[in-house]
């Protein structure tokens, strides 16, 4: 039972990281109609920004600010220099251009920082473990990540549903042409949305730093799952991104955690291990296929 609780927390923590990435990706695609493969690169930039400042100054607060600033500024530059030219183009060209950005940014990071993964020290206040219930220690940092993620989700909910800009964002996701026809400066809105997406990706990246290794290529590893989240949740929907991320995060973790033991009670160990490893990595894609079959627009689609 305690194991199940621990695994669910792990799932939520993974889901939160996916949500931060998926929220930006789904808005950019829903509102601007741009498939941004380089979203993972913004995650990478956030992680590197924080890692470098953390190494130089030793301050985690400064590292957070640097990570956020680096990804937001990079996002604005990318929007201004590349993405802005792509709004009217078709998806193939967008995919090619943003894929080019991935290569460009990965190679740039290699030249600047080398291929050796960077090490980010965990802030001392968060480096221990707390007993969530007696006998089950859980890393404090992971709890903090969950808390930050849920706060951001709540903040985004308020922003999208209760503010004037949020109203435009919602309108942009469903009736893009109408918003433009009403005289809203859609370009400014686009830049804002892209910047916000970059900021969230950067936040996910800088929080991943002390947990995982900060290295070239880390963005692409998580980007694929992020696309799965967006497909499951529905394009353009923040709510969809949240629930999609939680579904993917928790399912993936629980399958990995419990499927081997489950299958082992049914067949011989070696067969069970091979099958479980295969099935658990397939699991979330099976869910995605199922969602596409039943609700092709995703569970909480913003598009009509």
């Amino acid at each position: 039972m305690t194991l199940a609780l621990e695994q669910i927390l792990n799932g939520v923590q993974f889901g939160v990281a996916l949500f931060l990435l998926a929220a930006g990706l789904t808005l950019i695609f829903g509102i601007m109609g741009v498939i941004n493969l380089a979203h993972g690169s913004l995650y990478l930039i956030g992680a590197y920004g924080a890692a470098l400042v953390s190494q130089r100054t030793g301050s985690f607060i400064l590292a957070i600010l640097a990570g956020l600033a680096a990804s937001a500024i990079a996002g604005l530059i990318i929007e201004f220099v590349v993405i802005r030219k792509l709004y009217a183009r078709d998806h193939v060209q967008q995919v090619l251009a943003t894929f080019g950005l991935i290569l460009f940014i990965n190679e740039g990071a290699t030249i600047l920082f080398g291929r050796q993964p960077l090490f980010v020290a965990m802030p001392p206040a968060l480096s221990g473990a707390v007993e969530i219930i007696p006998g089950v220690p859980y890393p404090t940092y992971r709890l903090a990540v969950i808390a930050v993620g849920l706060l951001v989700a709540f903040g985004l909910y308020l922003f999208v549903n209760k503010t004037r800009v949020g109203m435009l964002v919602r309108a942009g996701a469903t009736h893009r042409d109408m918003v433009r026809a009403l005289g809203v400066d859609i370009r400014l809105l686009y830049t804002l949305v892209f910047g916000l997406g970059a900021l969230l990706a950067g936040l996910a990246g800088l929080m991943a730093g002390p947990l995982l290794a900060v290295q070239v290529g880390m963005g692409e590893q998580i980007l694929i799952l992020t696309f799965v989240v967006v497909v499951i949740g529905g394009v353009g929907s923040i709510r969809g991104a949240f629930f999609g991320a939680m579904i993917v995060g928790i399912t993936d973790t629980l399958l990995r955690g419990f499927l081997p033991a489950l299958l082992r009670s049914l067949m011989t160990t070696s067969q069970a291990d091979a099958l479980a490893a295969g099935l658990s990595s397939m699991g979330i894609y099976l869910i995605m296929a199922l969602v596409l079959l039943i609700k092709p627009q995703g569970l909480f689609s913003g598009q009509n």
């Binding site: 695994q7 792990n10 995982l212 880390m218 590893q221 955690g257 291990d273 479980a276």
Partner: peptide, 14 residues
């Protein structure tokens, strides 16, 4: 005995 994914960097469940 466990097999992880080759692209996996988070080992919390393990």
């Amino acid at each position: 005995e466990l097999y992880t994914r080759l692209d996996q960097t988070d080992f919390a469940p393990e």
